[in-house]
Structure formats: C-alpha cells, structure tokens
Write a protein that binds this DNA or RNA. Structure first.
Length: 274
DNA sequence: GCCCAGGTGAAGC
DNA sequence: GCTTCACATGGG
C-alpha cells in the first residue's frame, strides 16, 4: 500500500484508478486514496476531519514492524517482505467479503472484481460522490440480493455460484447467520458457522475470517498459497499433500501467520510475473 | 481447441 | 475415509 508496491495495491472490493491514486466505495462511503511521502493522502465526502471508517478499513493504525519481526527468519519470507514492502491486510466488511469470496471459486481475480463491480452497479445502493467520481454505488446488501433472485445473479456472471451467494444472503436476512456475532466467537466455531453456508468450504471460510475479522489463526490455502508453500518450503517433494501444508501452516508461521500468508500470496504472484 | 482460474459438493470407489 | 468430477465463464 506504500510506494514500494506501485501496481494494484488494493485487493478488497473494487478499486479503480483515479489519477495518480485510487477510488472505491468503502462502508457505504466514497473514498479516494493516493500514495504520498510517508503515508497516504485520503479524500472522502463527509465534512468531518477524520475518516475512521476508512482508517479502519485500510488498517492504517496497524504497526507492521512487530508483525514482520514475528515472522520466521527464513529466505522465502525475507524475499516476500522485501518485495511487498508496506503490504498490510485490509479489514473488509464481513458481508461484502463473504459474498465476494463465494464468487471467487475457480475464477481469476480480475473476473471476481468484475462480478463484484457488476453486482454493485446493478444492485448496490447509491452513495454520495463528488462530480469526478466514477464509482457511485455500494456493494448490495444481503436483503437486496435475496429479492433480486438467482436469475439476476446469473446475469452478473456468477454462474453456478449464484445459488451459493443466495444461500448466504438468505441466512443473513433470516438471522440464521449472525455476521456480527462471529466477531465474538472463537475461530474454529466461527469457521464452522461459515461453512454451514452452501458453497463455503474451508478456504473461503478462512478468507472471511482473515480478511474481515482479522483472525491471524486463519490461513487460507488457495492455488497460489499452495504453490508458494510447495515451491518455497518443500522444493524437493513431488506433490505436497493438503494435510501436510495445512499442519505446516498452522505450526510454522507464528502469531501473525495470516500476515505471512498474505506476503507469500502476493510474492508468489509477483514472481509468477503478473 | 485446450487448460486453468483466490473451490466446493456430490458421487464414486 | 480418499479420489474424481461437474459446475459457468472468460482469459491466455
């Protein structure tokens, strides 16, 4: 998020280029962010002096130094930290995060963004924006998506994921899934609750736990992280089993393993040349 | 055309 | 239990 990572620094929600910076709609509010010497310059609509919601989303108060210092001192993480200087985990809205990651299965990241953008354009509620803004709608609420229906979701290119998002939305609307309550639950119990949703397995549940709730004991293993762990930590093993990667990830990376996951994820993608 | 993508659930041994 | 496969859709 600092100047060391000039390309595509924002991974939660929809961010688009705006001059030298980026714009997005965060927590139902329009925002613009631009890298500046020693930090970020942010602009928003409200006439107040502080944008706590935005600071919180960007995890601006999180101090990286002790987090990075807690990583195991090994070559892969040293390289990843050097390559992704300033990278930090966003604190995303639970519902948007959950719905977005349900849309993520066997989709490329650009396509996931496209789906989220489509859902917002068609079904999101309008927010106050300045004249130059391009984005002007929030991510749709669960209730809106329930009333929109499966066909509408398929029209937004969700494909077979449409009923999955609908199931999640219904659970939220009917109170069978308490997204605020998850924050007060132990990680394993919260994970179980998320995995009751049709279309949410271990990986998506862990993404929500890490990216929306900041659970450092959630370590989502997707194709990229599997690639990273296999290549960097088990280079001589032909095919590392999922069970082995899971137990390794649980024991090796320390108290900020979620952060380590993020650094490895972005590092291996950068190395892959994209 | 073919393979793969920030996976998951169901069906098959 | 573990392995295989379908699922929509688009990019390389």
């Amino acid at each position: 998020m600092r100047s060391g990572v000039p390309l595509d620094p924002f991974w939660g929600g929809v961010w688009i280029r705006s001059g030298a910076g980026w714009e997005s709609v965060i927590c139902d509010r329009w925002a613009r962010v631009e890298a500046a010497p020693g930090g970020l310059t942010v602009s928003w609509m409200e006439g107040v002096s502080e944008a706590l919601w935005l600071q919180q989303h960007l995890a601006a108060d999180e101090v990286l130094k002790p987090i990075l210092a807690s990583f195991p001192d090994d070559a892969p993480l040293r390289a990843a930290v050097a390559r992704c200087r300033g990278l930090r985990l966003l604190r995303q809205e639970p519902w948007e995060c959950l719905a977005s990651f349900i849309c993520s299965s066997t989709k490329q990241i650009v396509q996931i963004r496209q789906i989220v953008a489509l859902l917002s354009e068609r079904w999101g509620h309008p927010v106050a924006v300045p004249p130059e803004a391009v984005l002007n709608r929030a991510f749709p609420t669960a209730a809106t998506l329930v009333s929109a229906g499966e066909g509408a979701l398929r029209d937004c290119k969700l494909g077979f994921r449409a009923p999955y998002v609908l199931d999640a939305a219904r659970r939220v609307v009917e109170g069978r899934l308490d997204l605020e309550g998850l924050a007060r639950m132990e990680t394993p119990a919260a994970r179980e609750a998320l995995m009751e949703i049709h279309g949410v397995g271990r990986k998506i549940a862990d993404c929500v736990l890490l990216f929306a709730y900041g659970r450092q004991d959630a370590f989502p293993i997707d194709v990229w992280v599997r690639r990273a762990l296999s290549q960097l930590y088990f280079p001589r093993v032909h095919q590392v089993s999922a069970a082995r990667l899971e137990s390794f990830s649980e024991s090796y990376f320390g108290p900020y393993s979620g952060y380590a996951q993020q650094y490895l994820f972005h590092y291996i993608r950068l190395e892959a040349g994209r």
